[in-house]
Every structure is written in structure tokens, then in C-alpha cells.
Amino acid sequence: MFDIAIVGAGTAGLSAAIYGVRAGKSVIVFEALTYGGQIINTPEVENYPGIRQISGFDFATGLYEQATGLGAEVVYERVIRIDDQGDTKLVVTEDGQYEAKSVILATGAKNRPLGVEREEELIGAGVSYCATCDGAFFRGKDVAVVGGGNTALEDAAYLSAYCRTVYLIHRRDQFRGEEKSVERLRKKENVKFVLESRVTALNGEGKLESITIEHGKNGETTQLAVEGLFVAIGQMPDNEAFANLVDVDHSGYIKAMESCETNVPGIFTAGDCRTKKVRQLATAAADGAIAALAACEYID
């Protein structure tokens, strides 16, 4: 029986692990993919207090080494269910079962897909969720960015430096992102705005060759020849497996206050997966600390 079982080895989960083991508890962390979470894709983090600049990979690796060096155990298994048996929480993974006195859910967030057919099949074959990761493979090509927030605007600006044409597709006629960024994009000759429009189909054999767009005003559809489609319509939580266990809000984020307690005694939550305003590394780490100490208090 472990004192604390943590779901997710991102910034929140690993921060919780550090606080848990330092408080003398036995800690096991479950990770479905690789330690580090979302930040490993980011080349430069420049806003984590105390570190002027660091790559996401180095940040995540430092955190991982700190947590495991102190004695936390990381197991690479996806958690598919948790049974609340009162004082014991049964953590069920794809490969086994583990008992713990308390649980911290730190499942983070993932990129929101467009929800268009063939989207998943074409990931790595034209469909991308990370312009800075994949942009260089589209040098001299025509690409599209979908979204209306700052990420979409930044992606379009980044890609405009490499690509022949960047179509910026947004379902409204106004952007949520900063007006200054929109203005800057309007001045670029190779950026074309496709507003009040939605992507309705992805076409191509083996790889993306074109997309079908429906224009909101008249419902007309057109085909746009692009080899790359960068989806930047935000993040979403990954909490379906726990929606029967703890209260979640209408978007699927686990409901919690500053204490990081959920509605179930002994189950806590930390990081991007929970209801909160600011989803950043610093707030994920802060939640991790709070959740771990709350779990310690609950156990004792």
C-alpha cells in the first residue's frame, strides 16, 4: 500500500511527488506516456520563477531527477480507473492494480482536436498541433492554421517565415487574440485570412493534400490545397476516466478550490486538469505542493 498515488508525471504530478517524499511518505507516480507532460515540446521556457531560460525538456528532466532521486517511484502505465473504497483507493492501470491511501489526479491537458474525420490518421502526415515542432518540415509549402486565439496568431506568424502561403482560418470574423498580432499578420503578404469559416474535411492519399472549408455566411464550400494543417484551437482536459469518481465542470475539468481537494475525501487534484484560471508551470507546481501536503494531512 502506497501513501500517495499520483496520476500524471507532468509538472504538477512530479512537484507533488517531491513534496510527498520529502514529507516522509511513499509515493508512486503513474505516467501514460513520458515524464514531463506538455512542456517537453517547448524549446524555451522563460517565465518560471528562478530560472531565466530553460528548454522544456531540461526543465522536465530536472524535475524528474529531483523526484526520483528523493525516492518517488515512476511507473509507465496509463490509469484507467480508480475505485474509492474509503480508506483505500484502488488504482487500476492498463497492466495492473495498486492500492494507495490517497490519490492526486494530475492528468494535465491535451490539444483539442478539430473533430474532423481522418484527423488522427493524418497526424504526422500533414496534421499538426505544434507549429514550432513541425513547421520546419513545411518550408516553401502552403499551409493552414485554424484558430482565433493568441496561439493561432503566433503559429501563423511563425509559419509565415518558412511557408509559401499561410491561410489563417477562423470561425468568427473577430480574433480573441491580441489586436496587435492580427495587425502584424495583415501586413504579411503570404498570410491570407479565411474568416467565418470551418474546416469540414481533410483530403489526400496517405498525406494531407487539401482541406474543404465551409463558409459560414452562405454555407458554400471550397477546397484549399495545403500540405499542412496546424490546429490551434486550445486545450482540453483528459479526465473521462475519472468523471464518475469526482465532480467535473461542464468542460471536464476537475472541480477544486485552492486546497486542491475534490469532493471525494482522500482524492486531490493538481495542475492543468483542474478548474483554475491560470494554467502555467508555476501554478502547476504550486498545486502539486498544496495537493501533496493536503494528502499528507489526510493520511495522518
Binding site: I123, G124, A125, F137, G206
Partner: peptide, 21 residues
């Protein structure tokens, strides 16, 4: 046709038989 990395491709007899991104 690598458009995202890491991409891992399995080859048998010089032919692609599987790919993960």
C-alpha cells in the same frame, strides 16, 4: 514524408511496413 518528429518507421526488405509518430 516525415512531417513531424519523432517518426519511427519499420522497414522489411526495404519496404515500409509500419510507422509511428
Amino acid at each position: 514524408g516525415v512531417m513531424s518528429i519523432p517518426t519511427v518507421i519499420a522497414f522489411k526488405n526495404g519496404e515500409e511496413v509500419g510507422r509511428s509518430v
